[in-house]
Simulated scan of single mutants.
Amino acid sequence: MTQIKRQKRAVSGWLVLNKPYDVTSTQAVGKIKWLYSAKKGGHAGTLDPLATGILPIALGEATKTVPFVQDGVKIYEFDLKWGSTTTTDDLEGEVTATSDVRPSQSELEAILPAFTGVITQVPPAFSAIKINGERAYDLARAGEQVDMPSREVEIEAFELLAHSDQISTFRVTCQKGTYVRALARDIAEQLGSKGHVSRLHRAAVGPFTDQDAVTIEQIEALELAERDQQLRPLNEAVSHLPEVVLDERQAQLVRMGNPALLIGRNAPIALDEAYATHKGAMVAMGYVEKGQFKPSRVIVAG
Protein backbone atom coordinates (compact mmCIF):
# COMPACT_ATOMS: atom_id res chain seq x y z
CA MET A 1 0.00 0.00 0.00
CA THR A 2 1.40 3.39 -1.00
CA GLN A 3 1.98 5.70 1.96
CA ILE A 4 0.54 9.20 1.60
CA LYS A 5 3.29 11.80 1.66
CA ARG A 6 3.01 14.34 4.47
CA GLN A 7 2.22 17.86 3.33
CA LYS A 8 4.95 20.28 4.43
CA ARG A 9 3.88 23.63 5.92
CA ALA A 10 5.43 27.07 5.70
CA VAL A 11 5.26 27.48 9.48
CA SER A 12 7.56 30.03 11.14
CA GLY A 13 8.66 30.69 14.70
CA TRP A 14 11.06 29.68 17.45
CA LEU A 15 10.61 26.57 19.57
CA VAL A 16 12.69 26.55 22.75
CA LEU A 17 13.39 22.87 23.20
CA ASN A 18 14.73 21.19 26.33
CA LYS A 19 16.90 18.69 24.44
CA PRO A 20 16.92 15.26 26.07
CA TYR A 21 20.00 13.27 27.02
CA ASP A 22 21.70 11.12 24.35
CA VAL A 23 20.02 12.84 21.40
CA THR A 24 22.01 14.84 18.85
CA SER A 25 21.01 18.39 17.95
CA THR A 26 20.40 17.27 14.36
CA GLN A 27 18.09 14.47 15.52
CA ALA A 28 16.17 16.91 17.72
CA VAL A 29 15.66 19.36 14.86
CA GLY A 30 14.53 16.54 12.57
CA LYS A 31 11.97 15.37 15.12
CA ILE A 32 10.54 18.86 15.65
CA LYS A 33 10.38 19.52 11.89
CA TRP A 34 8.44 16.27 11.50
CA LEU A 35 6.05 17.08 14.36
CA TYR A 36 5.32 20.49 12.82
CA SER A 37 5.37 19.26 9.19
CA ALA A 38 7.70 22.21 8.66
CA LYS A 39 9.36 22.90 5.31
CA LYS A 40 12.45 24.41 6.86
CA GLY A 41 14.21 24.27 10.22
CA GLY A 42 17.53 24.70 11.99
CA HIS A 43 19.03 25.29 15.41
CA ALA A 44 21.00 28.07 17.10
CA GLY A 45 24.07 26.33 18.49
CA THR A 46 24.93 22.63 18.70
CA LEU A 47 24.47 20.90 22.04
CA ASP A 48 26.46 17.71 22.74
CA PRO A 49 24.41 14.47 22.63
CA LEU A 50 25.15 13.81 26.32
CA ALA A 51 24.07 17.34 27.28
CA THR A 52 20.53 18.46 28.08
CA GLY A 53 18.87 21.84 27.97
CA ILE A 54 18.15 24.77 25.75
CA LEU A 55 18.29 24.04 22.02
CA PRO A 56 16.53 26.91 20.24
CA ILE A 57 14.96 25.55 17.04
CA ALA A 58 14.07 27.93 14.24
CA LEU A 59 11.28 26.99 11.84
CA GLY A 60 10.61 28.68 8.50
CA GLU A 61 11.45 32.38 8.39
CA ALA A 62 12.90 32.21 11.91
CA THR A 63 15.99 30.59 10.35
CA LYS A 64 16.91 34.08 9.09
CA THR A 65 17.36 35.20 12.70
CA VAL A 66 19.52 32.23 13.82
CA PRO A 67 22.83 34.20 13.92
CA PHE A 68 21.37 36.67 16.42
CA VAL A 69 20.50 33.87 18.86
CA GLN A 70 23.65 31.87 18.14
CA ASP A 71 25.83 34.85 19.06
CA GLY A 72 23.99 35.42 22.33
CA VAL A 73 25.27 34.76 25.85
CA LYS A 74 24.98 31.16 27.05
CA ILE A 75 24.58 29.78 30.57
CA TYR A 76 25.64 26.24 31.46
CA GLU A 77 25.39 24.20 34.63
CA PHE A 78 27.78 21.26 34.83
CA ASP A 79 29.27 18.63 37.11
CA LEU A 80 33.03 18.12 37.20
CA LYS A 81 33.81 14.55 38.25
CA TRP A 82 37.18 14.37 40.00
CA GLY A 83 39.82 11.70 39.55
CA SER A 84 40.15 11.02 35.82
CA THR A 85 40.50 12.57 32.40
CA THR A 86 38.96 11.00 29.30
CA THR A 87 39.57 11.15 25.55
CA THR A 88 36.42 13.24 25.10
CA ASP A 89 36.65 15.24 28.37
CA ASP A 90 33.24 13.82 29.32
CA LEU A 91 31.61 10.50 30.26
CA GLU A 92 31.63 9.16 26.71
CA GLY A 93 35.40 8.77 26.37
CA GLU A 94 37.96 6.29 27.63
CA VAL A 95 39.97 7.14 30.74
CA THR A 96 43.45 8.43 29.84
CA ALA A 97 44.83 9.43 33.25
CA THR A 98 43.85 9.34 36.93
CA SER A 99 44.66 11.29 40.09
CA ASP A 100 44.01 10.94 43.81
CA VAL A 101 44.24 14.72 44.36
CA ARG A 102 40.98 16.32 45.50
CA PRO A 103 40.96 20.12 45.80
CA SER A 104 39.15 21.83 48.65
CA GLN A 105 36.22 24.22 48.17
CA SER A 106 38.42 27.20 49.06
CA GLU A 107 41.02 26.15 46.47
CA LEU A 108 38.32 25.92 43.82
CA GLU A 109 36.82 29.29 44.69
CA ALA A 110 40.28 30.87 44.65
CA ILE A 111 41.03 29.64 41.12
CA LEU A 112 37.77 30.67 39.42
CA PRO A 113 38.81 34.32 38.84
CA ALA A 114 41.65 33.00 36.64
CA PHE A 115 38.99 31.40 34.45
CA THR A 116 36.85 34.55 34.23
CA GLY A 117 37.09 37.27 31.59
CA VAL A 118 38.92 36.69 28.31
CA ILE A 119 40.84 33.43 28.60
CA THR A 120 42.66 31.07 26.23
CA GLN A 121 41.55 27.47 25.93
CA VAL A 122 42.32 24.49 23.71
CA PRO A 123 39.04 22.93 22.54
CA PRO A 124 38.54 19.18 23.05
CA ALA A 125 39.79 16.92 20.25
CA PHE A 126 36.26 15.52 20.08
CA SER A 127 34.60 18.72 18.85
CA ALA A 128 32.97 20.01 15.67
CA ILE A 129 35.85 22.38 14.86
CA LYS A 130 37.27 21.84 11.38
CA ILE A 131 40.96 20.93 10.96
CA ASN A 132 42.08 21.13 7.33
CA GLY A 133 38.49 20.77 6.21
CA GLU A 134 37.71 17.77 8.45
CA ARG A 135 35.70 17.73 11.68
CA ALA A 136 38.02 17.22 14.64
CA TYR A 137 35.80 14.50 16.11
CA ASP A 138 35.95 12.52 12.84
CA LEU A 139 39.75 12.64 12.91
CA ALA A 140 39.85 11.71 16.61
CA ARG A 141 37.48 8.77 16.13
CA ALA A 142 39.69 7.55 13.28
CA GLY A 143 42.58 7.41 15.76
CA GLU A 144 44.49 10.36 14.33
CA GLN A 145 46.44 12.76 16.52
CA VAL A 146 44.52 16.04 16.52
CA ASP A 147 46.43 19.23 17.27
CA MET A 148 43.76 21.71 18.28
CA PRO A 149 44.66 25.39 17.97
CA SER A 150 44.05 27.47 21.09
CA ARG A 151 41.42 30.21 21.02
CA GLU A 152 40.30 33.14 23.11
CA VAL A 153 36.87 32.90 24.72
CA GLU A 154 35.04 35.17 27.14
CA ILE A 155 33.67 33.97 30.48
CA GLU A 156 31.32 36.52 32.03
CA ALA A 157 30.67 34.71 35.31
CA PHE A 158 31.80 31.47 36.96
CA GLU A 159 30.15 30.17 40.14
CA LEU A 160 30.75 27.11 42.31
CA LEU A 161 27.32 25.79 43.31
CA ALA A 162 28.27 22.65 45.24
CA HIS A 163 31.42 20.70 46.10
CA SER A 164 32.44 17.25 47.29
CA ASP A 165 35.44 14.95 46.91
CA GLN A 166 33.69 13.23 44.01
CA ILE A 167 31.83 15.96 42.13
CA SER A 168 31.74 19.76 41.99
CA THR A 169 28.86 21.65 40.37
CA PHE A 170 29.33 24.95 38.54
CA ARG A 171 27.33 27.58 36.66
CA VAL A 172 29.15 29.43 33.89
CA THR A 173 27.96 32.38 31.82
CA CYS A 174 29.94 32.65 28.62
CA GLN A 175 30.12 33.92 25.07
CA LYS A 176 29.91 31.91 21.85
CA GLY A 177 32.69 29.39 21.22
CA THR A 178 33.36 28.36 24.82
CA TYR A 179 33.88 24.66 25.50
CA VAL A 180 32.71 23.70 28.99
CA ARG A 181 34.53 20.35 28.70
CA ALA A 182 37.79 22.25 28.22
CA LEU A 183 37.03 24.42 31.27
CA ALA A 184 36.53 21.35 33.47
CA ARG A 185 39.71 19.70 32.17
CA ASP A 186 41.82 22.84 32.65
CA ILE A 187 40.51 23.64 36.14
CA ALA A 188 41.39 20.12 37.31
CA GLU A 189 44.84 20.28 35.69
CA GLN A 190 45.63 23.65 37.25
CA LEU A 191 44.77 22.26 40.70
CA GLY A 192 47.07 19.28 40.17
CA SER A 193 44.21 16.85 39.67
CA LYS A 194 42.27 15.20 36.84
CA GLY A 195 38.64 15.68 35.94
CA HIS A 196 35.96 15.52 33.27
CA VAL A 197 32.37 16.67 32.74
CA SER A 198 29.86 14.11 34.00
CA ARG A 199 26.73 16.24 33.51
CA LEU A 200 26.09 19.25 31.28
CA HIS A 201 22.92 21.33 31.07
CA ARG A 202 22.48 24.49 29.00
CA ALA A 203 20.18 26.82 30.91
CA ALA A 204 20.08 29.75 28.48
CA VAL A 205 20.93 30.78 24.93
CA GLY A 206 20.51 34.46 24.11
CA PRO A 207 16.97 35.49 25.08
CA PHE A 208 15.76 31.90 25.66
CA THR A 209 15.96 30.21 29.07
CA ASP A 210 14.82 27.08 30.92
CA GLN A 211 11.59 28.88 31.82
CA ASP A 212 10.71 29.05 28.10
CA ALA A 213 11.54 25.42 27.29
CA VAL A 214 9.29 22.52 26.34
CA THR A 215 10.11 18.84 25.87
CA ILE A 216 9.58 16.68 22.80
CA GLU A 217 7.02 14.66 24.80
CA GLN A 218 5.02 17.80 25.59
CA ILE A 219 4.91 18.77 21.91
CA GLU A 220 3.96 15.22 20.86
CA ALA A 221 0.97 15.31 23.23
CA LEU A 222 -0.52 18.38 21.50
CA GLU A 223 -2.67 18.75 18.40
CA LEU A 224 -1.05 20.63 15.52
CA ALA A 225 -2.87 23.92 16.25
CA GLU A 226 -1.78 23.68 19.89
CA ARG A 227 1.80 23.01 18.81
CA ASP A 228 1.75 26.24 16.80
CA GLN A 229 0.81 28.11 19.96
CA GLN A 230 4.11 26.97 21.51
CA LEU A 231 6.11 28.82 18.84
CA ARG A 232 7.63 32.11 19.88
CA PRO A 233 7.66 35.12 17.52
CA LEU A 234 10.71 36.01 15.43
CA ASN A 235 10.99 39.34 17.27
CA GLU A 236 12.24 37.59 20.40
CA ALA A 237 15.43 36.51 18.63
CA VAL A 238 16.40 40.14 17.98
CA SER A 239 14.89 41.77 21.06
CA HIS A 240 18.32 43.16 22.00
CA LEU A 241 18.29 45.33 18.85
CA PRO A 242 16.42 48.63 18.30
CA GLU A 243 12.92 48.20 16.90
CA VAL A 244 11.73 50.39 14.02
CA VAL A 245 7.93 50.51 13.73
CA LEU A 246 6.65 50.91 10.16
CA ASP A 247 3.27 51.98 8.82
CA GLU A 248 1.52 50.08 6.02
CA ARG A 249 3.18 51.99 3.18
CA GLN A 250 6.65 51.73 4.69
CA ALA A 251 6.16 48.02 5.36
CA GLN A 252 5.18 47.40 1.73
CA LEU A 253 8.36 49.11 0.54
CA VAL A 254 10.56 47.14 2.90
CA ARG A 255 8.91 43.81 2.02
CA MET A 256 9.92 44.48 -1.59
CA GLY A 257 13.51 45.05 -0.48
CA ASN A 258 13.37 48.83 -0.80
CA PRO A 259 14.41 51.44 1.80
CA ALA A 260 11.71 53.33 3.66
CA LEU A 261 12.02 56.92 4.85
CA LEU A 262 11.29 57.17 8.58
CA ILE A 263 9.26 60.17 9.66
CA GLY A 264 8.31 61.62 13.00
CA ARG A 265 10.06 63.45 15.82
CA ASN A 266 11.61 60.32 17.31
CA ALA A 267 12.54 58.64 14.03
CA PRO A 268 16.17 57.44 14.15
CA ILE A 269 18.73 58.90 11.75
CA ALA A 270 21.31 56.13 11.94
CA LEU A 271 21.44 52.63 13.45
CA ASP A 272 24.05 49.97 12.71
CA GLU A 273 21.54 47.16 13.29
CA ALA A 274 17.80 47.17 13.78
CA TYR A 275 14.66 45.22 13.02
CA ALA A 276 11.44 46.54 11.53
CA THR A 277 7.91 45.60 12.53
CA HIS A 278 4.40 46.34 11.32
CA LYS A 279 1.45 45.75 13.66
CA GLY A 280 3.76 43.77 15.94
CA ALA A 281 4.96 41.36 13.25
CA MET A 282 8.56 41.34 12.10
CA VAL A 283 9.06 42.63 8.56
CA ALA A 284 12.83 42.72 8.12
CA MET A 285 16.25 43.04 9.66
CA GLY A 286 18.47 45.86 8.48
CA TYR A 287 19.92 49.19 9.46
CA VAL A 288 19.08 52.90 9.41
CA GLU A 289 21.13 55.28 7.28
CA LYS A 290 20.32 58.96 6.71
CA GLY A 291 16.85 58.49 8.16
CA GLN A 292 15.99 55.50 5.98
CA PHE A 293 15.44 51.93 7.11
CA LYS A 294 17.33 49.71 4.69
CA PRO A 295 16.46 45.98 4.81
CA SER A 296 19.20 43.34 4.71
CA ARG A 297 16.96 40.28 5.35
CA VAL A 298 13.25 40.47 4.52
CA ILE A 299 10.81 38.24 6.40
CA VAL A 300 8.21 36.63 4.14
CA ALA A 301 4.77 37.00 5.67
CA GLY A 302 3.15 33.67 6.57
Rank of each mutant, 00 (worst) to 15 (best):
93 G>K: 02
111 I>L: 15
66 V>Y: 00
89 D>K: 00
72 G>L: 05
104 S>T: 15
85 T>V: 04
105 Q>S: 13
84 S>F: 05
96 T>R: 03
108 L>F: 06
94 E>L: 07
102 R>G: 12
89 D>M: 10
91 L>T: 15
89 D>Q: 12
81 K>M: 09
76 Y>I: 06
71 D>Q: 11
67 P>I: 03
78 F>Q: 00
76 Y>D: 10
95 V>N: 05
87 T>H: 09
96 T>W: 01
97 A>R: 05
71 D>F: 01
83 G>T: 03
90 D>F: 11
94 E>K: 14
99 S>W: 08
90 D>S: 03
73 V>S: 06
70 Q>K: 02
110 A>P: 01
90 D>N: 07
106 S>P: 01
64 K>I: 04
113 P>C: 09
64 K>F: 00
109 E>T: 12
65 T>M: 14
107 E>G: 01
71 D>I: 04
78 F>P: 02
68 F>P: 11
105 Q>C: 07
105 Q>G: 00
100 D>V: 10
67 P>E: 10
65 T>K: 01
113 P>H: 07
96 T>E: 13
93 G>E: 11
66 V>R: 04
86 T>W: 06
105 Q>T: 12
64 K>R: 15
92 E>Q: 14
93 G>Q: 03
112 L>M: 14
92 E>P: 15
88 T>S: 14
95 V>E: 15
71 D>Y: 02
71 D>G: 13
102 R>A: 05
96 T>Y: 00
99 S>L: 04
88 T>G: 06
111 I>E: 09
94 E>D: 15
68 F>T: 06
102 R>E: 05
68 F>N: 07
113 P>S: 10
76 Y>E: 08
99 S>F: 04
88 T>N: 11
66 V>S: 07
79 D>Y: 02
73 V>H: 01
98 T>K: 09
94 E>W: 00
98 T>Y: 00
78 F>W: 15
107 E>M: 12
70 Q>T: 15
97 A>T: 02
68 F>I: 02
85 T>C: 10
68 F>D: 06
70 Q>R: 07
110 A>G: 07
93 G>C: 09
72 G>E: 12
87 T>A: 01
95 V>A: 12
97 A>H: 08
102 R>C: 07
95 V>K: 10
66 V>T: 13
110 A>M: 05
